[in-house]
């Protein structure tokens, strides 16, 4: 998902746990929230830093493909809406960085790890937004997939993460609806506009399915994360839910999902659908997607170009504080 491949240490059985670890697991099983200053296993802390960090980075990098269209939106109203949406994503990144920082990692450390490629962000943001319809597809599909993942995470065991998720979920539904609204306009427009909408769906469908990550039914990392309640559903469960929810929405638009194998399966009560090309997914994660260099380059440039400004404000604040102290 926004955190697609989070590694954690293997899962411990109850017998292998120390008494402290067992008491910790009991608290989680009772549904208690874990707060930052409380004791937690090192693995729990580390996995959470990776997961929340990756999630935060995705929110921040995710501003870039949409930011690309702010000055070119078709109307002033669409510009204002898109600006508000992208600003929300900045907010989401900030809530999440703060949640990660309560675990003892600094903001600069997280930034440094993003910029050096040590920490990842979601693969989806390495695809280009070529037309205005792509902005519709991103809101509808990408935010739609994000919601699928984020809603259950509101119940995650780590207090600050859970609270950040609750805030974020309140804001996400606007994101998806504004995207779908763009798609409706395009799909009901001229034949060229409708073709654009179909083209956007064609290009974003499989990358959206990849957002949930590869199947993790047998993954030990996932088993541990689920025991700790920092992952609530398997990747396949969420992907299935997403497909089941999205297909009727595409039908309403009169657009077709680019998958000939798509078929309603009465028995399982869901659609059968084609898996995305996972070799493409791993290539994108490795840095070889269509926009990886551009995205990371833009982040690093913004960070470096802004350094003098951050330092200037800090120097000013220190000077004023010193002057105030001298006057006292």
């Amino acid at each position: 998902m926004y955190a697609q491949l989070v590694k954690s240490d293997g899962m411990k059985s109850r017998e292998e746990m120390s008494p402290q670890e067992r008491a910790f697991q009991d608290r989680i099983d009772r549904g208690e929230k874990i707060e930052p200053k409380e004791w937690m296993p090192e693995g729990y802390r580390k996995t959470l830093i990776r997961q929340i960090g990756q999630h935060a980075h995705s929110e921040i990098v995710g501003q870039l493909p949409e930011g690309n269209w702010i000055t070119r939106a078709p109307t002033l109203e669409r510009t204002a809406i898109l600006l508000a949406k992208v600003q929300d994503e900045a907010g989401h990144g900030l809530y999440l960085y703060c949640a990660a920082e309560t675990l003892g990692v600094s903001r600069d450390e997280l930034m440094e790890k993003l910029h050096s490629g040590q920490m990842k962000y979601s693969s989806i943001f390495n695809y280009p937004t070529l037309t205005w319809a792509d902005i519709g597809a991103v809101g509808w599909l990408v935010d739609g997939a994000a919601i699928m993942n984020q809603v259950p995470l509101q119940r995650t065991s780590f207090g600050p993460y859970s609270r950040a998720m609750i805030r974020i979920c309140k804001e996400e539904s606007f994101h998806q609806r504004q995207g779908y609204d763009i798609m409706m306009k395009m799909a009901q427009g001229t034949s060229e506009q409708k073709a654009m909408a179909q083209d956007a769906l064609n290009r974003f469908w499989y990358p959206s399915l990849m957002m949930f990550g590869p199947s993790d039914k047998e993954s030990v990392h996932s088993a541990q994360s689920m025991a700790w309640k920092i992952k609530i559903n398997t990747n396949d469960e969420l992907r299935q839910k997403f497909v089941d929810q999205t297909v009727p929405q595409a039908e309403y638009l009169g657009l077709s999902i680019p998958d000939d194998t798509l078929n309603w399966n009465e028995e399982k009560g869901g659609y059968d659908f084609a898996e995305p090309d996972w070799s493409e997914f791993f290539e994108v994660l490795k840095g070889n997607g269509p926009c990886n260099k551009e995205r990371l380059g833009a982040r690093v440039k913004a960070w470096e170009d802004g350094a003098w400004f951050r330092d200037g404000l800090m120097a000013h604040a220190e000077k004023r504080a010193a002057a105030r102290q001298a006057a006292e």
């Binding site: 900030l94 703060c98 903001r107 609270r163 805030r167 951050r310 404000l313 800090m314 000013h316």
Partner: peptide
């Protein structure tokens, strides 16, 4: 409601 980074109180 949460936290944030800023150089001083005003910011």
């Amino acid at each position: 409601v949460g936290s944030l980074h800023a150089p001083d109180a005003e910011m």
